[in-house]
Amino acid sequence: MDIIVSNVLVLVGIAFAAAIILYLVSQKFNVEENPKIGEVESFLPGANCGACGKAGCHNFAESCVKASEEEFKNMYCPVGGAEVMKKVSNALGYAAVEKEPAVAVLKCNGTCENAPAKIHFDGISICRLADKISVGQTGCPDGCLRLGDCVKVCKFGALSINPETGLPTVDEEKCTSCSACVNICPRHLFEIRPKGKNGQRVYVACSNKQKGAIARKNCKVACIGCMKCTKICPSIKVENNLSYIPPEVSAAEFGEELVKNCPTGAIIMTKNSQSQNEDNNG
């Protein structure tokens, strides 16, 4: 009996002593912090992706709390989107920032079929290096290298290499438009574009700046800078033999005509997600 009592006493004593030490240490090393930072941080996605331009979610929360109302307007978490920003602004008592949902698009359609491989890579696994030492498998100096640096850098698993086309595909559901792929691609093939009404977007899936004949030699669907699209919609610009469709161009209005009239098929339009859903239902 005595043994049990003494054991219990000793254990309780140790626990108590440890508790006191822990308490003292936590007091000593306690850092004063604005409680709002914690509150704001709790709303954030917590991926520390850096898409907001800050070092991480905590850093972003810190800057939000410190910011004046004017400065706060420039703060945006592209991952969390409008929903999260609304919560953050409510917590801080500022007006909410509105931004359109966006997604990354690949401005290259040099699939294995459209642009067959001419050069064989042996043991190269990084796009950024392959870009330095060769023009790439397809011979197109601005085309996708198909080694997937973007896939490796995406923190949300939104990118994957399609084994059939050889190109990365973007999962719209998962893409948070954080720009990691935009920054890592040595050929700057990704662009963050607004998702568009009903998920309909029209864009030029090519980045080749070579003259038409040279570009077509390597890739069937290269943009040749023929200017046809500029006649359909005047806000489309062609520079360096490459057409660029600004995000403002309405896909519903011009999309079909643009796609139909592009002689090489460089212009791509995504399907109307609503009608697609209806198709699926029906």
Binding site: I119, H120, F121, D122, G123, I124, L129, I133, S134
Partner: peptide, 8 residues
Amino acid sequence: MLKISTAP
């Protein structure tokens, strides 16, 4: 067909 690889 020639192959391309990184140094070394």
